[in-house]
């Protein structure tokens, strides 16, 4: 469902060029749980941005469910991201002036779902994640674990085909971390594809496949081999 064909990326700052990502290819099937590991600055977020249709590669191609992402125009790409890709971030990125319910409604609002359905869907998701009694709380009134669960509900709101998560457990306590990871496994079992950037060996060891990035070079490893290289 996701084909990454030899993409690479350079950043140019003045005269200096950073080769953030060397040519990388991946072929990812539906329902796979992919972990991407590597030291800080190795190009993990760059790779995720490109897969998410937010950063065009210097060369190469990304095909998601038959759509070559960077052959679409920016509006089509935004639309595709809205409908098919869900994001989860290390610092949750909840909109501070919206309450939990409104944050979960957000992707649906951008899509144009009517109000009643937005509310119904968002309420259901929050209840499933155990936040039924926190719906009118602003993000600043929630703990880190609760915030990430709200963010998780927001990610799932549009029932995406692909979830891209950039160190989603980095700011969480072990308990919250485990519940997020368990949720991921459940989703994968239901056929959800997940690409997760993590520093956490325990997390990467539970993934279906692991890619190790080092100074922009990507190499697939077997999950059991992943050590504390990151």
């Amino acid at each position: 469902m996701l084909e990454i064909k030899s993409i690479c990326k350079d950043y140019t700052r003045g005269r200096r060029t950073v080769h953030a990502l060397q040519p990388t290819s991946m072929n990812i099937g539906k329902g796979q749980f992919i972990a991407i590991v590597g030291p800080s600055g190795s190009g993990k977020s760059t790779l995720l941005s490109m897969i998410g249709g937010m950063l065009s590669p210097k060369s190469g191609q990304i095909v998601l469910n038959g759509h070559s992402l960077y052959e679409l125009n920016i509006k089509q790409r935004s639309r595709l991201r809205n409908e098919q890709i869900g994001f989860l971030f290390q610092s949750f990125n909840l909109v501070p002036y919206l309450n939990a319910l409104e944050n979960v409604q957000l992707p649906m609002a951008l899509y144009g779902t009517n109000r009643a359905n937005q509310k119904k869907q968002a309420t259901q998701l929050l209840e499933e994640l155990g936040l039924g009694n926190r719906m009118d709380h602003k993000p600043c009134e929630l703990s880190a674990g609760q915030q990430q669960r709200v963010a998780m509900a927001r990610t799932l709101a549009m029932r995406p085909n692909l979830i891209l998560a950039d160190e989603p457990t980095g700011n969480l306590d072990p308990g919250s971390r485990d519940s997020i990871i368990q949720a991921f496994h459940r989703l994968c079992a239901e056929g959800q594809t997940i690409i997760l950037v993590t520093h956490d060996t325990a997390v990467s060891q539970s993934a279906d496949r692991v890619f190790q990035i080092n100074e922009g070079t990507t190499r697939e490893e077997s999950p059991s081999e992943v050590s504390n290289a990151a």
Partner: peptide
Amino acid sequence: ELGTLMALGATP
């Protein structure tokens, strides 16, 4: 925040 909105599918 605006970057996040774009990630969630907001067009420019």
